[in-house]
Amino acid sequence: MHRGKGMTFVGDSRIPKRGKFIPPKDYSEYPGKTEAFLPNFLLKEWMVGAVFLIGFLVLTVSEASPLEAEADPTKAGYIPLPDWYFLFLYQLLKYPYAAGDYKVIGIVILPGLAMIALLIAPWLDRGPERRAARRPIATGLMLLSLISIIYLTWESSVSHDWAKSEEQGKIVKKVDIDKSSEGYKIYSSQSCVNCHGENLEGKVGPALVGKNIPAQLVEKVAVNGIPPKMPPNAFKGSDKDLKTLAKFIEKVSKK
């Protein structure tokens, strides 16, 4: 160790300087057009930022962020969907070798390996070469994971029934239903109430409120059903009761 004259210390301390730090490149002596961070370069960054912000504000003004109906844990038929950036994980768990008995693979091993590999990437890819084309293994693995993430996300979004989940999540306006009326009595004594809910808000079956259902349609559907979900002959009773029921539903389903 260097001792005596010319010895340097770390800051104000008595620890001698070891000088192992790899100094950053000094770009002021670097060939090419370098420029000062402030104001020259920052101005360019901020211009990019300003354009970005304009686009972003246009998006927020034109597209309202979605809000579905208030959470209701009793509506078990709801098809859940995570936010888009988790879709690939969600899709992965649908495959037989990543679910059921093998779900440890889909839940722990694959994502865990990916996360650890990402964290320790600098030690997996240690060569001095920086160009992507000259380190084919690292680049290849990253491209492979990238493609699988894009593929899984895409698969997940095409296999999801968007129309149905929109229907299930819709905000249904509360309608005052006269529960003492003749029509409601028939509605609740028949099997209708089991699927369409006590307030016609929908349960396993779709909501009836806010749909403008004409009486004739109610009469037809109550007898014929809508395959595959709604069975035929759901209504059992006299024609007179059916008419009353149909009128009642027409009335409460008005928007």
Partner: peptide, 23 residues
Amino acid sequence: RRQFLNYTLTGVGGFMAAGMLMP
């Protein structure tokens, strides 16, 4: 030139701050 850059920088920065904060 430096002054000009500084004024532009303040302007662009002000625009961004206003765009974000106004709503």
